[in-house]
């Protein structure tokens, strides 16, 4: 840890003192705030930055994309089948947001974005999607080269964390794009009583099952076709949103999204695993509560 203590001993002085600090640091190569490193922002934790460096990438800056698309008045009135307008608006909002984040990735000369947080807001008249993440680019080593060898034809967007990106890439897999499927479906209107006649019976409501099951399958099929479009061979960490629409309870919202991945290495490489048993459980400290 002597390098660290030397570094701290020199901290807090003008740039001129950096030479002195640099010489104190064991490995030497000094640049007062390495070229191009200025003004970067990143919402990654230090661990994630270190892991990215270990696979040859470095963060560039926080990037985002916003899509806000109108939804025709009246589509939420109780009807039958899928609410196509809500679905179309969501997909358009997502692609608008993706387009926005891609432009920012281009502008910051990055190759993609990791740790994308997906915010989805639905209101009666609009569907809003906001994507926020950190763009990354290959880091240069001392010789000016980089050991990140994957060439992306277009910027990748991935909602996997930087940590997941690093772990996945060491196994030979790389993320391509954020893909999503959506379905908004009206519950069948026919009353339950009418369909079964007797309230005391245990019976499957097949028309209900069919309507909702179909909608879920449609959303998953849509996500799958997007994976094919972006050239992926798989999708990991699918997030499933499944809830009644807050302002129209008879409509069930079903969203499924995640990052399409593809194996770019010749074969899957298995990590060398060892099992560990953490022995650092939180120590219970003294607790006192009043007895009155």
């Amino acid at each position: 840890m002597s390098a660290a203590s030397e570094a701290f001993a020199g901290l807090g002085h003008e740039e001129a003192d950096l030479g002195q600090l640099g010489s104190a640091l064991a490995s030497g190569v000094l640049a007062p705030s390495v070229a191009g490193a200025g003004g970067l922002t990143s919402d990654l934790s230090l661990d994630e930055i270190l892991l990215l460096h270990s696979v040859g990438l470095e963060p560039v800056q926080v990037v985002f994309g916003v899509g806000a698309i109108s939804v025709l008045t009246g589509v939420w009135v109780w009807g039958t089948g899928l609410v196509a307008d809500a679905h179309d608006a969501f997909q358009q909002a997502l692609s608008t947001a993706k387009e926005g984040i891609r432009q920012q990735i281009h502008a910051s000369s990055a190759i993609g974005v990791v740790g994308v947080e997906v915010e989805i807001q639905l209101s009666p008249h609009r569907s809003v999607v906001v994507l926020t993440g950190t763009s990354v680019r290959p880091s240069r080593d001392e010789a000016g080269g980089s050991h990140f060898n994957v060439r992306y034809p277009s910027p990748f967007i991935c909602d996997l964390s930087a940590r997941d990106f690093a772990v996945l890439s060491t196994a030979g897999w790389y993320p391509l794009d954020l893909v999503a499927g959506a379905a908004y479906v009206h519950a069948p209107r026919r009353g339950v009583g009418a369909s079964i006649g007797q309230a005391a019976q245990n019976v499957e409501l097949t028309n209900f099952t069919e309507a909702l099951y179909d909608a879920r399958e449609a959303a998953m099929a849509e996500m799958q076709s997007q994976i094919s479009v972006v050239g992926g061979t798989g999708l990991l960490d699918a997030k499933v949103v499944d809830r009644p629409v807050s302002f129209a309870h008879h409509v069930v919202e079903f969203l499924v999204y995640g990052t399409a991945v593809k194996m770019l290495a010749p074969s899957h490489s298995h990590p060398n695993l060892s099992t560990v048993l953490p022995v650092d459980d939180k120590v219970r400290t003294f607790e006192a509560t009043s007895l009155d």
Binding site: V34, S54, G56, L277
Partner: peptide
């Protein structure tokens, strides 16, 4: 966030040790 200044080129970190926790 924290403002940090880079004073050296980043040394590549070795590959992390992968583990499975049994807790």
């Amino acid at each position: 966030g924290s403002l940090v200044r880079r004073v050296r080129a980043t040394l590549p970190l070795g590959p992390p040790v992968t583990t499975v926790s049994l807790a």
